[in-house]
Design a protein around this nucleic acid. Structure first.
Lengths: 141, 141
DNA sequence: TATTAATAGATAATCAATATCTAGTAATAT
DNA sequence: ATATTACTAGATATTGATTATCTATTAATA
């Protein structure tokens, strides 16, 4: 929890509520890149009155403040990541597990794309798919 | 239209129908990475009885046969691409135009990811976002 | 040409995400 | 500390993409 989320919310005209702090906390402490539904299920026991709508509205605010990133992995729902450092994602097509690929040496990839396309690139999403080490051993599935 | 789609369909136990050929043809000749809705609208005049359900069912088959790729750019709907060569995609955050980035030198990026993660990588999706050359000139929007 | 199995199209159903509306709550001034 | 005000939470309804279902139709095969 490295960010002064309370101040950030207030400075941008959003009120600081326990629900918003809770959503961010769960997201920040999770390594699972949860969906809105997963966040909701995680918070339900602690905040019995928590609504799924509140989760979505909070997510929208957090994304707007660049506190989280929205992932589109090709599933039917979005996932969210509170680690805003630039990094790729990798997903196992067997066990569906999803992980991070940190500190990937891009070797001027972005620069190459800019040169090729004339775009001014502001963001990127890199997804890799394959079979994770565990599933490679467990040949049976 | 480089592929023998007729034979491919038949060999895999699917019947060859005009609708299926039409969906693939539109997709193959398009550079727009259309959504299901866009395909439907394109086909409507020629096949007045064409149903959106048929578009979706055909897409599923084509994807299964690796004749097309499914793109998830973070929009509310999927896009489809009949160019199955490995390539990245780039989208303008202003005009929403979506283009290809062909022949991108990856510089052993996949190999690096495999080394880092222990995965056996079988597929990848690279999306870049930014401002396209046209929108960079047209400062007004 | 007849038979059979798969498909097209119409329709309903699903489900993630968004919008709406009101009681409740955080922020600010008093 | 309290009151006032504006924003928010939660409940609910709605939207919109995608999927499922069901039957008449059509492609494949004999």
């Amino acid at each position: 929890m490295v960010k002064d989320i309370t101040g950030l919310l207030r400075d941008n005209g959003f009120k600081v509520t326990p629900q918003r702090l809770a959503v961010y906390k769960v997201l920040y402490e999770s390594k699972e890149h949860p969906t809105a539904e997963m966040l909701f299920n995680e918070l339900q026991p602690v905040y019995p009155t928590m609504s799924l709508a509140t989760v979505y509205k909070t997510i929208e605010i957090l994304a707007q403040l660049n506190l989280i990133k929205v992932l589109n992995t090709g599933e039917d729902s979005f996932r969210y990541d509170a680690d805003t450092r630039e990094h790729a994602h990798i997903k196992c097509i067997k066990c569906k597990d999803m992980g991070d690929v940190m500190d990937l040496e891009m070797g001027g990839l972005v620069q190459a794309v800019e040169n090729k396309t004339g775009y001014d690139i502001t963001a990127q999403q890199l997804y890799f798919y394959g079979v994770c080490p565990i599933c490679r051993k467990n040949k049976m599935n």
